[in-house]
Computed example of a mutant assay.
Amino acid sequence: MNEDTTPRPTREELAMTLFEHIGELRKRIIYTLIVLVIGLAIGLFLANPAYDFLMSQEPVSGMKLHTFSLWDGIGMYMKFALVIALLLVIPFAFFQLWAFVKPALQEREQRAALTFVPMALLLFIGGLAFSYFVVFPMAFNFTTDVSRHLGLEETYGITQYFTFLFNILIPISLLFELPIVIMFLTQIRILTPVRLRKMRRVAYLILIILGTMITPPDFISDMLVAVPLIVLYEVSVLLSGVVYRKQQARDAAWEEEFGT
């Protein structure tokens, strides 16, 4: 029997490879943090027109908001800056993730994974629209109805109002990235549609819990958020299946041409 004479990597070479990967990951994280800081600066510049726009929309149009602290105005600016910065950071973070795993992907997989970057931005914007135009009015009306039922006088602070708003907008918008995350993990062969189907019950439970945490404590509101999240998961499973079948077809073609 012929012995395998292929040289095996030494412990020092393996350690060097590990440190190179850690260094590369550190570089990608630093780049993302730099863009986050730049996005915050841009967000501070755009916070005032964004604030004026939201204050002209229902349900806050014509409502007088109050400040109960000297820091409330600054806190409002920072919240707006964070949301605006996320519009820049999310696609850039996906691009950095793609650049990190790029050496391990085939050329076709590299091109396919790169298309996830603009899709991530579109899904985030879609999540913002859904949470602002559907979930937030529903949550606001529920809480104000409870207050009026108790005979309470409505006096809203600017911090309390926008904290309530962004606590709904940001989590739902990030959850809308689920299809992109699952497709990307399938593309780099970490997840498969079979594994996702086996995880379906656990995923449903987690999504329902998240839906109840974001929305007011009534069944209709919970379902109006949980059902779209479950639909997003099922869409993610379907998209994962598309990516997986293309991988299987390419692997089969490779084996047929070059052998196993």
Rank of each mutant, 00 (worst) to 15 (best):
V231T: 10
I190F: 15
D222F: 09
L238C: 10
L174H: 10
P228G: 04
I172V: 15
Y204M: 12
T186L: 02
E257L: 14
I209E: 01
L185Q: 04
L210G: 11
L238V: 13
S221C: 04
K246F: 09
I170S: 10
E255L: 07
L224H: 02
P228K: 07
L238D: 02
Y233L: 11
T192F: 07
Q247S: 10
L185V: 06
I168G: 02
S240Q: 04
P171V: 13
L196K: 04
V194C: 03
M213W: 09
Y244A: 07
I209C: 08
G241F: 05
L178S: 08
L229V: 08
Y244C: 03
I180S: 07
I230Q: 01
L232D: 03
R197L: 15
V243K: 03
A226F: 08
G211N: 07
T212F: 15
E177D: 12
R245A: 08
W254R: 15
V202Y: 15
F176S: 05
R197S: 12
I214E: 02
R250N: 09
L191I: 10
P171N: 09
E255A: 15
A252M: 11
L174I: 14
S240W: 04
L232N: 00
D218N: 15
D251H: 11
E234Q: 10
A252Q: 14
G241A: 12
P216S: 04
R250P: 02
T215W: 03
G211L: 05
V242Q: 06
E177H: 11
M213K: 06
Q187C: 03
L196M: 14
Q247T: 01
P193Q: 11
V181F: 15
I188Q: 00
V235S: 05
F184T: 00
I180R: 03
Q248E: 05
G241P: 05
G211Q: 05
L191N: 04
G211E: 06
K198T: 04
I168Y: 03
